[in-house]
Amino acid sequence: MKRVLTFGMVVAVGALLIFTVSTDLLPFGSFPQRQVGEDIKNAIGQQILVEAPEDTGSANVVTSVVWGYRGYDTLGEVTVLFTAVVGVLAVLRAVGKRE
């Protein structure tokens, strides 16, 4: 019974999400436009596309985003990796070892 209820909930959540993304967003492929109120505004990605080649000198704009504009995220990402390594080491450390 509980499983049926959970299944129903999953279906409902999925249907709601699909309905939302297919009605409330501009159609697929409409970057850089975003509907803000009555105006159509550009997403910040567009501004980065315009400025990045000259600002960072990198041919790959994604690289300039990863290492330049959003460098702090990359620092966080590396920290997550470090955390996971330490965490796995902590969980899988040799049994019975005493310091």
Binding site: G45, Q46, V50, S64, V65, V66, R70, T74, E77, A84
Partner: peptide, 30 residues
């Protein structure tokens, strides 16, 4: 360059997904 900016796809989600993939690898490993 202006023509490039008018035709390229959005770089931001690609950067976000790159970060997010690494994070998920970490969770899966743990």
């Amino acid at each position: 360059l202006p023509g490039f900016a008018a035709h390229a796809v959005d770089p931001i989600p690609q950067a976000l997904v790159l970060t997010s993939i690494v994070i998920n690898i970490c969770i899966l490993a743990l």
